[in-house]
């Protein structure tokens, strides 16, 4: 399969993609997909760099990162619908801009960065005058009314407390606490120094502990 770059999807492009996906025989396709499923993240990144984004690679990326990206966006946006929109837009951008992936970071970091950008864009679209240095406590009221809650009361309290954090600290805390990303990856993702990230995370944790003690 040849490397192809699709910037904007049109009907013509879709037809080409369909034809390309049907031309090879099914056996080779299945083995290729199986191989992608078993490969590591680095191998997948190399595959992406070598062959470009094809339907199989893209499907594998979606399969691997869809859940973590959804929960990441959900932690930032609180609303399920907003998180769903952000995830869809993020994967569409990944499909359209896969050729821009240079391999200088992990694939996961690159995907998280796109998802974070989509979440920020969505927040800006909903509230153009938002100040990311300030908290949005009004989002705390939406948490208990939305879909797909785990039912863990302490976890819900933590989510409510996170709404009282400035967005920057909330982002760092989410990536570190829930996604277990190393500071080096978060630093790459946010274009920030590790020290600044540590400080932000430390501030966030202290604030959340106070909030949780108050809410308890």
């Amino acid at each position: 399969m040849s490397c192809h770059r699709i910037v904007s999807i049109s009907h013509f492009d879709i037809a080409i993609i369909k034809r390309m996906s049907t031309e090879p025989n099914q056996t080779s396709l299945h083995t290729h997909s199986q191989r992608l499923m078993n490969c590591s993240e680095e191998e997948l990144s190399q595959e992406l760099l070598r062959e470009g984004v094809g339907p199989e690679i893209f499907a594998e990326i979606v399969r691997r990162y869809q859940r973590s990206i959804y929960y990441h966006c959900r932690n930032l946006l609180v609303s399920h619908d907003d998180a769903d929109d952000a995830v869809q837009n993020a994967f569409i951008k990944i499909w359209q801009n896969a050729s821009q992936f240079k391999g200088e970071s992990l694939l996961r970091t690159w995907i998280y960065r796109i998802a974070t950008n989509e979440s920020i864009n969505l927040i800006r679209k909903r509230k153009p005058t938002i100040d990311f240095d300030e908290a949005q406590p009004e989002m705390a009221e939406m948490i208990t009314e939305d879909l797909y809650l785990s039912g863990d009361e302490i976890a819900l309290k933590l989510q409510k407390a996170m709404c009282f954090l400035p967005f920057k600290q909330k982002l760092v805390f989410t990536l570190r606490y829930f996604e277990d990303l190393p500071y080096a990856d978060i630093a790459l993702l946010t274009s920030t120094s590790e020290g600044a990230l540590k400080a932000s995370y430390h501030h966030a944790v202290k604030k959340l502990e106070i909030y949780l003690n108050v809410l308890r």
Binding site: I9, K18, S33
Partner: peptide, 18 residues
């Protein structure tokens, strides 16, 4: 969500066994 995404991008999921 995955099938919706693939449908938006015009990717035929029946061809992808993985």
């Amino acid at each position: 969500s995955e099938s919706r995404l693939m449908q938006r991008l015009g990717i035929d999921m029946s061809q992808l066994s993985g």
